[in-house]
């Protein structure tokens, strides 16, 4: 029973297809990483799920209902009380003229999570949960008086206020100092373990994805090109793009090895596989026909003719 399902999701911005027929499920109580470079469409996927954009095609199903259709305010509110989002820029996601307390109080009041008399107390509890102590000193502060890590924790507290079941985290650590990142990632892990929250962790950083995520989805040019359990995908990557990413990540643990220099980048192809211009494994078929996502190992799929060819065995 999945927490949230995305099926056939497509989003166009004028002529640009940012997201192309994306489908996946978020398993409850697990962190799923959505990994890709800028321009891969990963942030767009998160924003569609958050109902900030309307999809061009496809659906997001939550609790058995399509969350992307034009719904009544009551239904939208219900959805928003269950699916929340954390943004990339800690300063940009907070209103500069409002206090920390305001940011956390608003969702509490809108969704009537607690009676009015208990709102202040709940704000302090939430601040303590995310490690912002002493809460009575943090609550009246304005965003510019906090550090980047503190701001991001406020954003997390705000998301937690409605007691959601799914949290979409869009590159929550990429604008934070390196030594602060682990703290925020550990907080996510703690929330997953203690509260059974489901996370969609959007990132371009494979290392942090490995650190927090149970499952991994790799996106390229608007499509999912590989998916599976994190360790499995990283130890045995199927799609050539995943392999390329993995070899490009700086890692202290590896020696200075030669990196297979990909051929000069040209525009992605329109017919056939989108990765063909950069792919060391490309065969003739790749230029003619676009591959589909096929399961090559148990629970691991990839979109590649060579490493995950379409199975000829008819599905039973």
């Amino acid at each position: 029973m999945s927490a949230l399902e995305v099926a056939g999701l497509t989003k166009d911005f004028r002529k640009l297809r940012a997201v192309d027929d994306v489908a996946f499920e978020l398993q409850p109580g697990r962190i799923t990483a959505l990994v890709g470079e800028s321009g891969s469409g990963k942030s767009t996927v998160a924003r569609v799920i958050a109902r900030l954009y309307e999809p061009t095609a496809g659906s997001v199903r939550f609790e058995g209902r399509d969350a992307t259709s034009r719904a009544r305010r009551h239904d939208v509110l219900r959805y928003r009380s269950q699916v929340q989002m954390i943004f990339q820029d800690p300063f940009g996601s907070l209103n500069p003229v409002k206090t920390v307390a305001h940011h956390i109080e608003r969702p509490l009041r809108i969704h009537r999570i607690v009676p009015r008399s208990q709102v202040k107390a709940r704000v302090q509890e939430l601040l303590e949960t995310v490690g912002l102590v002493p809460p009575e000193q943090i609550a009246p502060k304005y965003p510019h008086e906090l550090s980047g890590g503190q701001r991001q924790r406020v954003a997390i507290a705000r998301a937690l206020a409605v007691e959601p079941s799914v949290v979409l985290a869009d590159e929550p650590t990429s604008m934070l100092d390196v030594s602060i990142r682990i703290g925020v990632l550990n907080l996510m892990l703690k929330l997953k373990e203690e509260r059974g929250l489901t996370f969609l962790y959007v990132t371009h950083d494979l290392a942090s994805a490995r650190y927090v995520a149970d499952d991994m989805l790799v996106m390229y040019a608007g499509q999912i090109v590989e998916q599976g359990p994190t360790e499995q995908v990283l130890q045995n990557p199927l799609h050539p793009y995943t392999r390329l990413l993995l070899s490009a990540v700086p890692d202290a643990g590896r020696s200075r090895e030669a990196f297979a220099r990909a051929p000069r980048r040209v525009a992605d192809a329109t017919v056939g596989c989108r990765f063909v211009a950069r792919c060391p494994l490309a065969i003739d078929l790749c230029r003619r026909e676009a591959p589909t996502l096929e399961e090559a190992h148990p629970s691991q799929s990839a979109r590649c003719h060579v490493t995950a060819p379409r199975s000829w065995q008819a599905s039973a």
């Binding site: 390196v178 030594s179 602060i180 682990i182 550990n186 892990l189 650190y211 990283l234 890692d251 643990g253």
Partner: peptide
């Protein structure tokens, strides 16, 4: 040492990391 421990490894064993508490 704290900085080095702030980069989760891509390969090799994976364990809970501490980073560096506090702020500059």
């Amino acid at each position: 040492l704290g900085l080095l421990r702030s980069f989760p490894p891509v390969t090799g064993p994976l364990e809970r990391m501490k980073g560096i508490p506090g702020t500059p």
